[in-house]
């Protein structure tokens, strides 16, 4: 389901500055956050991709809602608007034809973010 029209920013996809500020540069905590993201968020994004393929829009909406706060916290700016569009359209079941592309984009960006975090 790869789409060659999607362009991705190859610079750092996430920004932890806000989180570091709130938690006073607690390196141990930042490490825990990264681990939590790497261990759980890509899996949820993949679940959303599968739900989209199955046409299970309620589940797509639920997972988009869940991913939204993680994307906001880590300031993954390139998909901030996309995840909101997915949640809204999936819940209201409108413009469904555009959703697979957006869901795939989110899935790929999250996977790339996790990869960057691991490096």
């Amino acid at each position: 389901m790869q789409n060659s029209n999607i362009m991705y920013n190859i610079e750092q996809l996430y920004d932890l500055s806000g989180l570091k500020e709130i938690h006073q540069n607690d390196e141990a905590f930042i490490r825990i956050i990264k681990e939590a993201f790497i261990n759980h968020t890509p899996a949820d994004a993949t679940k959303m991709l599968n739900a989209c393929s199955a046409g299970d829009w309620a589940q797509v909406g639920f997972l988009a809602h869940k991913l939204k706060s993680s994307i906001d916290i880590l300031k993954i700016a390139s998909i901030k608007d996309d995840i909101r569009t997915i949640e809204l359209n999936a819940r209201q079941q409108k413009q469904l034809t555009s959703l697979p592309e957006l869901v795939q984009k989110v899935n790929i960006v999250i996977a790339m973010t996790a990869k960057q975090m691991n490096e």
Binding site: L19, N39, D44, I73
Partner: peptide, 13 residues
């Protein structure tokens, strides 16, 4: 909180 990431943040905070 079912989102593990957010759960971790809230728990830590």
């Amino acid at each position: 909180e079912d989102d593990k990431l957010y759960n971790t943040i809230l728990h830590h905070f």
